[in-house]
């Protein structure tokens, strides 16, 4: 087994009622790699991400994190999830806790690390994303962009092997998108392993090591960003990309 492989997906299939959402996907993500998933709404990219940390039951295939199976509803899942950081579109910060308490929850309760050490690390990470002065604030006192940066820190503080970012800027004002994406770009540069679902094409091109276009529950094209955005192999990719440009 290759030590470098963080996540391996084999023949993944996901069905909601009569709708086939994911129809046989194979995907391998190596350490330090940033993979960007794009595609039209409803193509299954968010669902794929949710299957990767066992938030959805799957109807076929398998997902492995460092060779360990990720299985929905299994007890072992809690342990595996500590190694997978997930950031959601609507932040998911707990409203009854301060930003700092949100960030410290998992290291203290799940990893049972000493409080002083956790606090130092949490504050350092909050400083890094420009939220040092917001540690004692409640989520409702923060802007959307600030909340999302706090949510990223919350996932980051447990030192996950991989981060899954699910359309993390979709609910944000355009001006706040930038501050959040800068944080992600910074993570990618520093060698974090990530799978990112996004509709921000310029960002996708800047951050990705590999771009994957999904449509109808399957992978349509998989290429390095340079190739994908400027010389795509498939007609489907060209058509998809053309919807992002305007000409009179």
């Amino acid at each position: 087994m290759n030590e470098d492989i963080v996540i391996e997906v084999k023949g993944l299939k996901k069905v909601f009622g009569e709708n086939v959402i994911i129809n046989g996907i194979d995907l391998t993500v190596r350490k330090g790699e940033t993979v960007v998933l794009i595609g039209p709404s409803g193509c299954g990219k968010s669902t794929l991400l949710r299957c990767l940390n066992g938030l959805e039951p799957i109807q076929g295939g398998s997902v492995f994190l460092h060779g360990e199976p990720v299985e929905y509803g299994k007890r072992s899942l809690n342990k595996i999830r500590q190694k997978i950081g997930m950031v959601f579109q609507d932040y998911g910060l707990f409203p009854h806790m301060t930003v700092l308490d949100n960030v410290m929850l998992a290291p203290l309760k799940v990893q049972k690390r000493p409080k002083d050490e956790v606090k130092t690390e949490a504050m350092a990470l909050l400083e890094r994303v420009g939220l040092g002065d917001k540690a004692k604030s409640y989520p409702s006192q923060l802007s959307g962009g600030q909340q999302q940066r706090a949510a990223i820190v919350r996932s980051l503080v447990v030192n996950p092997d991989i981060m899954l970012l699910d359309e993390i800027t979709a609910a944000l004002d355009p001006e706040m998108v930038h501050e959040v994406l800068n944080v992600v770009l910074d993570l990618a540069k520093n060698g974090s392993t990530m799978i990112i679902v996004t509709h921000e094409m310029a960002f996708a091109e800047a951050v990705a090591d590999r771009v994957i276009l999904m449509d109808g529950g399957v992978i349509v094209e998989e290429n390095p960003p340079q190739k994908f955005f400027h010389d795509a192999d498939t007609e489907r990719a060209k058509k998809f990309l053309s919807t992002f440009s305007y000409s009179k």
């Binding site: 940390n53 938030l55 809690n78 342990k79 999830r81 500590q82 997978i84 950081g85 997930m86 959601f88 609507d90 932040y91 998911g92 910060l93 707990f94 409203p95 009854h96 929850l105 998992a106 309760k109 799940v110 990893q111 949510a151 919350r154 996932s155 447990v158």
Partner: peptide, 27 residues
């Protein structure tokens, strides 16, 4: 209590009991 909060708690590795006491009950 919003579904996102339950999923966020699950993704952080909190078990059912920890989710109940730290996330669900206070809210």
């Amino acid at each position: 209590v919003k579904k996102t909060h339950l999923e966020a708690a699950a993704s952080l590795g909190l078990n059912e009991l920890q989710t109940m006491t730290n996330v669900v009950f206070p809210q």
